[in-house]
Nucleic acid binder design. Structure first.
Lengths: 237, 237
DNA sequence: AAGTGGTCTAGACCACCAA
DNA sequence: TGGTGGTCTAGACCACTTA
């Protein structure tokens, strides 16, 4: 509650945001009505309205007439960097999507991913129709996600399961081009010199490592496309 | 100017945005003062203020007290998709940056890029120290950018020159992995099986094609990294 | 049908900063 | 130092929605 901000509506924003971030107000919770904020802060309704509209534009709350304002569900689908969900890409191409688990083990964290405690290490293949489209190497922190130990990933890709179960706050992507090499070439059914697009993603929940994923695609069958406008966001207000 | 939007401040936003996108108000141009919009639209200052603040938040304008509101310079470094400027990447690595032009011609547009009229086609190499870091294939519409015909690109990369001279409004990126092949391999001084990261960018000014660029990097010496947070933007208002 | 948020008005005071 | 944008007030009317 105690946040100093130079202006009143910024203090309201900071107060509400803090209660959401701390978890005191969880997704779905109905926050006070505008007139209750007016009474609490002793200000005009326009000031409260400005603050709540900013919080809505920022994705923290949803507002419904007659019903009130509610803490929003975090938007999970990381369309931001133009990296789409594999299942969605395949189905939008009009092909059947499939996933097959190749290996599963519990081990200490690998060198590519510093993480305390044991990790669940998975390896699987994403299919588009009958052809493999991507090899996925995945590590999940069992400290952060103990439930993962019990899940059967035989046919469900770990990415979608994770995103439904663990809220994440930060992620880092790395995109690189690599040669397939003998191992990936065999799994992807391509030449071992095939250039492959490699997408790596590290995910954290406030400094705590959640998961690491490395997806490797045949370069002749997969690319990343994104539209953008110069650092200009939609100005809908 | 004629844009229908359900509310008044949205119409103001749309009107100003249209004048900026069309190029009628170019970067640096001082747009009318708030009180001038008030007179023009016959509304309260708060309504104008709300519209202009939204345009500022969206990156279209900058506002300075006592001075007025100005059309913002487009953010050139397309940090959105995590694609940085090559020169900046090289100098931040602590190496010397260089560019050398290999070929230059005026021709009809290629098949990779549908564009009316003649295009200036350039091919050049970006250097990090003494080693080539990227091959750039560039096409510039001479209809949209007639000045380009007179410019000496011998040592200045066309990308930086263009972005200083032509405001663009839309762009599309494509990221792919390809094998070097004999020609790129020779120019980049790598093996012909080397996996390369290929970044293509199409740029428009309101439906009019400006330029197409294809940059090819050796995969073992260049990658793209980007951080991101779920769909919550800063709520500064 | 009642109450919510959405929008707008017509004022006001203030801080800042370029002229 | 005057004029700009930044903020806020105390109203008002409206559309929508859900209880």
């Amino acid at each position: 509650m105690r946040r100093d901000a130079s202006t009143l509506h910024q203090r309201i924003i900071a107060d509400v945001e803090a209660r959401i971030r701390s978890g005191e107000w969880r997704p779905g919770h109905r926050i006070p009505y505008e007139h209750e904020f007016v009474a609490q802060y002793g200000c005009a309704r326009a000031t409260v309205s400005k603050a709540l509209q900013a919080l809505q534009a920022a994705g923290f709350i949803e507002r419904r007439k007659k019903a009130g304002s509610f803490v929003a569900q975090p938007q999970v689908h990381a369309a931001l960097l133009g990296i789409p969900d594999i299942r969605r890409v395949v189905t939008e191409r009009g092909e059947d999507y499939g996933f097959r688990l190749l290996a599963r083990s519990v081990e200490p964290a690998s060198d590519a991913w510093p993480c305390d405690g044991a990790v669940l290490r998975l390896e699987g293949v994403h299919f588009a129709g009958a052809r493999p489209l991507a090899i996925e190497h995945r590590e999940i922190s069992l400290v952060a996600v103990p439930d993962a130990r019990e899940v059967d990933f035989a046919h469900e890709a770990p990415g979608s399961w994770l995103l439904d179960h663990i809220p994440w706050t930060d992620a880092r992507h790395r995109i690189a081009a690599v040669s397939a090499g003998p191992r990936i070439a065999r799994l992807l059914e391509v030449d071992r010199h095939q250039a492959c697009l490699q997408v790596e993603r590290w995910t954290w929940q406030v400094d705590r490592p959640i998961t690491f994923a490395r997806q490797t695609f045949p370069g002749d069958r997969y690319d990343l496309v994104g539209d953008l406008t110069p650092a200009r966001r939609p100005a809908d207000a």
